[in-house]
Amino acid sequence: MKVEVSNTANLPTPYGHFKLTAFREWTQNIHGRDCELEHLVISSLELPKKPLVRIHSECLTGDVLHSLKCDCGGELEIALKLIQQRGGMILYLRQEGRGIGLFNKINAYALQDQGLDTVEANEALGLPRDARDYRIVGEIFKHFGLSEIILLTNNPSKIQFLESFARVEREEIFAPQNCHNQEYLQIKKNKMGHLLP
């Protein structure tokens, strides 16, 4: 795996003061074409021995536009607050739409408007329900010397994958539900095995 690491810079935010480091990964997209992905690590000024870690896949609609259709933006905000309080990092992975990309995600949204759920919409487009790849996480953990973490997640697949890089203790993270994301959260629980109430 070819990876390039940026310098580290400061980032003051409404949630507190963080450090930023970018990781450039040379990989292939969902269609097998070579591409570069630039991931971001948002870390507290000091890292504890067992840091709190959130692996957050990019969600432009949720993180930036505050979409009510998902829980992504809410989870990111909760993670930023917790990382500031307890020390740790957010790995902001450029894997929009569970790895299918923004263009495909919007096409999937259009199918959801017609009544399909998130899994059915991806499958109707001939795409996997989850195309994310977490191999870059191993390189990031190596760079920061992480061997044990507290992982903020409800996704058992993330836990299973990351256990090949570090000792993982899970902590749940729940963003507020609303009338727009209730079905989405049920699909995550019932069809994707997420550990949700």
Rank of each mutant, 00 (worst) to 15 (best):
M1S: 07
N7S: 14
A9N: 07
A9Y: 13
N10A: 14
L11E: 02
P12V: 14
Y15H: 11
G16T: 08
G16P: 07
L20I: 15
E25T: 08
E25L: 10
Q28D: 09
N29C: 05
I30L: 12
I30P: 05
G32Q: 11
D34M: 09
L40V: 15
V41C: 14
V41F: 07
I42A: 04
S43R: 15
S43H: 12
L47S: 07
P51S: 05
S57D: 00
C59K: 02
T61F: 10
H66Q: 10
K69H: 13
C70E: 00
G74Q: 00
G74E: 00
I78G: 01
L80R: 08
K81D: 09
I83Y: 04
Q85E: 13
L91P: 00
L91H: 03
Y92M: 06
L93D: 03
R94Y: 06
Q95P: 05
Q95R: 12
E96D: 04
G99N: 06
G99C: 08
I100K: 08
I100F: 05
G101L: 02
K105S: 04
Y109C: 04
Y109T: 08
A110V: 14
L111M: 12
Q112W: 06
D113C: 11
D117F: 09
E123Y: 10
A124E: 11
G126K: 11
P128Y: 11
P128W: 09
R129S: 15
D133K: 11
I136F: 09
I136K: 07
I136C: 03
V137W: 01
I140Q: 02
H143D: 04
G145C: 05
L146I: 12
L151W: 02
T153H: 01
P156E: 03
S157E: 12
S157A: 14
K158W: 02
Q160M: 09
F161Y: 13
S164E: 11
V168C: 05
E169G: 08
E169T: 15
E171V: 15
E171S: 14
E171K: 15
I173P: 00
Q177Y: 14
N178T: 10
C179R: 15
C179L: 15
N181W: 03
N181T: 09
E183A: 13
E183R: 13
Y184E: 00
Q186M: 12
H194S: 04
